[in-house]
Computed example of a mutant assay.
Amino acid sequence: MGNFDHNAIIRGAQLTVVSTVRALRNPDLFKHEHFRQAALAVAIGIATELIIQIPIIAIKFVLWFLSFIMDLESATWDESLLHGLDFLSKSVLQVPFLVMSLMRYITPTLDDIFMESLKWVDTTYVDKHKGEDPSNLRDMYYPNLSMYTTQDGKVKVQAEKKPGRERIFLFLRRYGQRAAMLLGVSLFSCVPVVGRFAMPAASFYAFKGVVGTNPAAVIFGAGLIFPKSYVVSFLHSFYASRSLMREMLEPYFSRVPFTPDQKKRWFADREGVLFGFAFAFTVVLKAPFIGVLLYGVAQAATAYLVTKITDPPPSPAEKEAFAETQVTWKNKHDFLMMPLDKLDQMNKAQDEKAAAPEVPGRKFT
């Protein structure tokens, strides 16, 4: 399964817990402007949700009225219709989550949370190792990255000239495509006979390029056995996790100038860890009201993740060549094998390993 193996996914899930705990220890996190905006997003989301619920409520009223003139006790189509509408509202549209994501393109608050949290990670790292020789500690992330502008990472993808309105349009198009795909697959699954293959086939297509043909075939077979609702939740969580992770990493990629090909390879080499990290947040962020408020916590936790799967950035003068050095995750094996409580030694251990002479048969510990 390559980069999507179970060790990487488990380590990513572990990082979700560790990074969240560390982010919540930052005394400045809850003073941030984000939570006022999150409250606004909740209000807008509720208002939009009520607008969406109007036609759903109307349909429920019509079904209730029809129950007086038709026998709906033995019918199942009405329950299927109501279930489908509920799925559309909660799993496909997710309006409050959409509103919170759009905030990124309107205000710099989430970007500020990421950078503030990155500074906090550096501070706690130095404090944790204050009794050690400073020359043995890893380089800091915040000082150099804070000197990069949020336009540096857009130069190579030719996005620096795109106005904010166009960036919002591109985000909404990606969101619409994903929602339309899930809705289309759900509707096709209702077709007699061939419909039962819709969800498993969509799962096979989604996972084939990530885990390979054989594991994807296993997922396809499981989709034929498990209830459709399970497959829908599984497929939705997969796409939502990938989308969330890309959004959370936007403050990093907006600064570091990756080409589209470099960025694609960067994600591919870290696929499992990123999925494991984002999956838990995806589940939590679905919760009404609370999920939107925790969006900022997820952004803060991503700063800690970045320090574990990338190298400290160089000075701005050297940033052009930096992206290519990050495409391949050099300390992946050590990272996946190292005990969780030793992760803060990762960069130091990697430097020692790189400096150690090559000795046949020697195993680095």
Results as ranks from 00 to 15, higher is better:
M245F: 07
I225W: 07
F234Y: 15
A240H: 13
D261K: 10
P215D: 04
G209K: 11
K228C: 05
T213V: 15
Y239L: 14
I225R: 06
I225C: 10
Y252K: 00
A222K: 05
Q262F: 04
F234W: 14
G221K: 04
F220K: 02
L249S: 09
V218K: 07
E250V: 03
A216G: 07
M245P: 01
G209A: 06
V210R: 10
L244V: 07
P257Y: 12
V232Y: 06
L224H: 08
S241V: 00
P251W: 07
Y230N: 08
A216I: 06
M248N: 11
M245G: 06
S237P: 01
P227A: 10
Q262V: 08
F258C: 05
L235T: 01
V211T: 12
S243H: 12
A222W: 13
S241T: 03
A240W: 11
A206H: 11
A206Y: 13
H236M: 02
A206N: 10
S241M: 06
I219V: 14
Y230R: 13
I225F: 11
A217L: 15
N214H: 04
A217Q: 10
K228N: 08
P257C: 15
T259N: 08
Y252C: 04
F258Q: 00
G212F: 04
Y230G: 00
Y239I: 09
L224S: 01
F226N: 06
M245N: 04
R242W: 14
S254A: 10
S237W: 03
S254T: 01
K263V: 02
M248S: 14
V211D: 01
S229W: 14
P257V: 14
S243I: 00
R246E: 15
P257D: 08
G209Y: 08
S241R: 02
F207S: 14
S241C: 02
T259E: 12
L244A: 08
L244H: 08
G221Q: 07
F220P: 05
Y252G: 00
K208P: 07
E247Q: 14
A216C: 06
N214F: 11
F253P: 00
R242Y: 08
F238N: 08
L224D: 05
A206W: 08
S233G: 12
A217W: 12
V218N: 02
I225Y: 10
V210T: 12
T259V: 09
F258I: 03
R255F: 13
L224F: 05
M248Q: 11
K228G: 00
A240F: 13
P251N: 00
V210S: 10
K208S: 11
P215N: 09
P251G: 03
P260D: 04
E250Q: 04
F207L: 15
K263M: 07
A217I: 13
K208W: 12
Y252S: 04
F234Q: 11
Q262D: 02
V211E: 12
S254V: 00
F238C: 13
I219S: 05
A240S: 14
Y239A: 07
G209R: 04
Y205P: 05
P227K: 10
A206E: 11
V211H: 03
M245W: 03
K208T: 13
E250L: 06
G221N: 10
Y252E: 07
H236N: 05
S243R: 05
R255W: 07
K263S: 10
P215R: 01
T213P: 02
A216E: 07
P215G: 01
A216V: 05
Q262S: 01
G221R: 07
